[in-house]
Design a protein around this nucleic acid. Structure first.
Ligand SMILES: Nc1ccn([C@H]2C[C@H](O)[C@@H](COP(=O)(O)OP(=O)(O)OP(=O)(O)O)O2)c(=O)n1
Ligand SMILES: [Mg+2]
Ligand SMILES: [Mg+2]
Length: 822
DNA sequence: ATCCTCCCCTAC
DNA sequence: TAAGGTAGGGGAGGAT
């Protein structure tokens, strides 16, 4: 209902107002045609979706036709909602990453068709418990933790990768593959030239920078004295909790790049990789415009537009190259100039931030807009670039007024009728309203905020969902409850490449993925984080897309798929990540030549791995004041804060150099004498010196990690009442991923001792609901596996016995749990 | 009711 | 030629 087919538009020449015919994606169009073309003959397979893996009889094509004609659904790739995988045999590596309980022989389909009714698929399972002839696999292998590196398993990959590595070094790149991800230098080259990579990196860099400045700041802003003396004194009337300023550089890349091409000032200019037009009739470039000047915008140009399209609108357009290093330097000047006056800053991107000016104007007793005028002048003096500022009582108001102010202007909504101000704004100008939402709103005949204000909330929520519907209406009136977030915490890290992806061989894919995972590992290490949830994101050529894209080396029209795995322990290890990612990839079974994009993302990030305890401690201290204006923090607890940040930075904040970053460590250093910090048992892993770990071979590392998943007693003795709490933390069944951990213990045939103890302990802490679940779970998975399961059946009996024993002691009765095995 | 996975959308 | 990255918010639908 709320989800629309994605807007996907390969050639991108579709114009902005006429929200294209691409409401329905090409893919869906095709789907519809096919559906209607082949008249349905029966509904035998209604509600059944299949994916065909490998060679089958009937063939994949034939099975597809059967499904279509008889009410079923055919998936070209295995998806989460794919109900059955049809296969006659599967290579081991594929089996290991598939749930085998839904792998069914193709005969299921053909026999069902013959009988003209849906037969019981369980008789056609490719892998059953009785089916010992089949390679043993399934549950164990599936749930065996993915990151785990066992020599026997990994060798095939690592060997072939090594071989390929050497081979590629010696040999030239295959025919027609220069400039693709097959080239071993591609990733580096691509990242160096990708503007989107640069702005993303700068963006998170500045978020970090602000955190860093705030943590190392003493709460004194000497530069405010200058404001007090230079600007007219005036009293503020307080009628809001925030005075929000939004500041954004005007056509940032263009302004900066123009400094080296001054003769082009005043002309329509765009920053792009393309050299522009050589011939008079050359409107074909699919190079993207990162930023265009306001003269160019007057002709209808927009950031992100293709050069060819832009030239059609503005044939006299001049293009200038990127200057990434200069963007970085300029952005630092922007941030550091503002940081002299306040650190109540929410970083948005390299050319844009919000600041809460309330504490500043209250202290200095100055007019907000006087400060803004002075600030903009200072930024211009230092950078030679103009910026614009909007001011309002919330972030939305500030954001909207910046648009109004641009270029090179400022605008305040304070004391104005906000609802009135919003009325003539186009819905597309609301932050959060992109092409899709705008299209859906125009379908509702809504084009301005005025109309949006008057639309019944119910209608909006029907189309956009409860939450977003309400947000939309609030926004249309200029209301926005979201407070600024000064200290932002990263929740994920990813490396994605959706350009130049043209492979022929699996090994080429593997080799590229290796580089991608190494890059990911590098980035995790840079910010001292480890992650527990690993996601592989792929872009696959859409069925109807031509093999060659309109845009050179682009991805074209694609289908996006992703798959994630929970790791047993957080990791940043390149090998561990790579191994897991290769398995995820194998599970999709995509022919290499159909890939158009590859990304690897790590989320569920743990706390900082180094000085973990110290940082956690720091957070505890700073927790309450976390998002408070910097000055209030000091007032609330001057002693503590001084202790945390003895390193004073007066006057001009320094650039974010390596030296500066490492100075952050001094925060942690301060705690190095405090030993009584309480560490959650889960994090015991972090007690191993990371440097030591890094020296060890990855297999060993993972073994150690595995060990530490079941930590021994914590070395430091916490206060008495905390002991029991901590011990409970160690109970595997009290971990959120206890199912996974338990499976892994069983699959690896580890000792049942801990399971037994922890299960009994559950009874002691009277967590009966959980012990009930646990016992049922144990029974089920032990029943499902065979082989070693004899031992585990006995283990189960023992565990059950010990649980019942505790039950008797505490409750004087037995728990109704699955019966013992015989 | 709450969680998880696999998306989609938006922004710069 | 061209360098379509990356993070966060959130919804649908299934599992628990
Ligand atoms: N599709 C986009 C949008 C932005 N950027 C880069 C180039 C921009 O200069 C910079 C900042 O983005 P803004 O949205 O702030 O746009 P500009 O600064 O270029 O223009 P404006 O004056 O509207 O802020 O990010 C980009 O590469 N591709
Ligand atoms: Mg800008
Ligand atoms: Mg901006």
């Amino acid at each position: 209902m709320k989800r629309r087919p994605p807007l996907d538009d390969d050639n991108g020449f579709a114009q902005h107002g006429g929200y294209m015919s691409a409401k329905i994606t090409k893919l869906e169009e095709q789907f519809n045609t096919i559906q209607s073309a082949c008249r349905q003959k029966s509904k035998i397979f209604e509600g059944i979706s299949i994916f065909v893996n490998g060679f089958t009889n009937p063939s994949g094509e034939e099975l597809k036709r059967i499904m279509m004609e008889h009410g079923g659904t055919f998936h070209h790739y295995q998806r989460s909602h794919t109900k059955f995988v049809i296969a006659s045999n599967l290579p081991d590596v594929k089996v290991r990453t598939n749930i085998t309980r839904n792998i069914v022989k193709p005969e299921w389909i053909s026999d069902s068709l013959k009988e003209n009714k849906l037969l019981d698929y369980s008789k056609y399972l490719l892998y059953t418990n009785k089916n010992r002839a089949q390679p043993q696999i399934s549950f164990k292998a599936l749930n065996k933790n993915e990151y785990e590196v066992k020599k026997e398993e990994v060798d095939p990959f690592s060997l072939s990768l090594q071989a390929l590595n050497d081979k590629i070094k010696d040999e030239s790149i295959p025919e027609g593959k220069t400039g693709t991800a097959v080239d071993p230098n591609f990733l580096e080259e691509f990242l160096n030239n990708s503007r989107l990579h640069h702005i993303a990196t700068l963006g998170s860099g500045f978020k970090f920078h602000i955190n860093d400045l705030r943590k190392n700041h003493d709460g004194i802003f000497p530069e405010r004295e200058i404001l007090k003396s230079k600007l007219k004194q005036s009293e503020m009337k307080v009628e809001s909790s925030e005075i929000v300023m939004h500041i954004d550089m005007d056509c940032f890349f263009v302004s900066v790049s123009l400094k080296k091409h001054p003769h082009l000032k005043g002309l329509p200019v765009a920053v792009t990789h393309s050299k522009g037009r050589n011939e008079s009739e050359d409107f074909t470039s699919y190079s993207e415009i990162a930023s265009c000047s306001y003269e160019a915008r007057a002709k209808g140009l927009k950031n992100g537009m293709f050069v060819g399209a832009a030239l059609k609108l503005c044939p006299e357009l001049k293009t200038i190259p990127y200057d990434f290093d200069e963007y970085r330097k300029t952005a630092f000047i922007l941030y550091d100039t503002i940081a002299k006056y306040t650190l109540d800053i929410e970083a948005v991107s390299c050319d844009e931030l919000y600041a809460d000016l309330m504490p500043l104007v209250e202290e200095c007793k100055i007019e907000v807009m006087d400060f803004v005028t002075m600030l903009r002048q200072e930024i211009f003096d230092k950078t030679g670039c103009t910026c614009s500022v909007g001011v309002g009582y919330n972030r939305l108001q500030a954001r909207m007024t910046t648009k109004e102010a641009k270029p090179n202007g400022q605008f305040s909504l304070l004391g104005m009728n906000v609802e009135e101000f919003m009325k003539d704004k186009k819905i597309r100008d609301l932050p959060g309203v992109g092409p899709n939402t705008a299209y859906q709103l125009t379908q509702l005949k809504i084009e301005t905020c005025d109309q949006l204000q008057n639309l019944p909330l119910q209608t909006l929520q029907q189309t956009f969902g409860k939450k977003f519907g309400e947000t939309l209406q609030m926004m249309s009136k200029g209301i926005d409850d979201k407070k600024l977030v000064f200290e932002q915490v990263r929740k994920s890290v990813s490396v994605e490449v959706n350009y130049g992806i043209r492979f022929n061989e699996d090994q080429e894919v593997h080799l590229f993925l290796k580089q991608v995972t190494e890059e990911l590992s590098k980035r995790l290490k840079e910010i001292s984080k480890k992650g527990k949830l690993l996601t592989l994101k792929l872009m696959i050529r859409a069925k109807d897309a031509s093999k060659e894209t309109a845009k050179f080396m682009g991805h074209g029209h694609v289908e996006r798929i992703s798959k994630s795995v929970q790791l047993l322990a957080a990791t940043d290890d390149a090998i561990a990540i790579q191994t897991t990612v290769l398995k995820l990839l194998a599970a999709f079974n995509i022919p290499p030549y159909e890939l158009r994009g590859i990304g690897v993302q790590m989320s569920k990030l743990d706390e900082e791995k180094k000085d973990n305890k110290l940082l956690e401690m720091f957070k505890k201290v700073a927790e309450k004041q976390q998002n408070a204006p910097i000055q209030e923090r000091i007032e609330a607890s001057p002693v503590k804060i001084r202790k945390i940040s003895p390193v004073k930075k007066r006057g001009r904040p320094s650039k974010l150099s390596n030296a500066d970053r490492s100075s952050n460590i001094s925060v942690a250093d301060m705690f190095s004498t405090k030993k009584n910090s309480r560490v959650s048992a889960k994090k015991t892993i972090e007690m191993i010196d990371p440097e030591v770990l890094a020296e060890l071979p990855p297999e060993i590392v993972n073994e150690i990690l595995e060990e530490y998943q079941m930590p021994e007693e914590v070395e430091e003795i916490p206060e008495i009442e905390e002991i029991s709490e901590e011990k409970n933390d160690e109970n595997i069944f009290l971990q959120s991923n206890w199912r996974q951990v338990t499976k892994s213990l069983i699959d690896n045939n580890e000792s049942a001792e801990q399971i037994k103890n922890d299960a009994a302990s559950l009874v002691r802490i009277k967590n009966i609901d959980l012990i009930y679940l646990v016992m049922r779970f144990l029974h089920r998975i032990i029943e499902e596996c065979d082989d070693e399961s004899l031992a585990w059946r006995e283990n189960y009996n023992e565990i059950a016995e010990s649980v019942q024993e505790e039950m008797q002691k505490i409750y004087k009765k037995k728990l109704s749990i699955p019966k013992k095995f015989i």
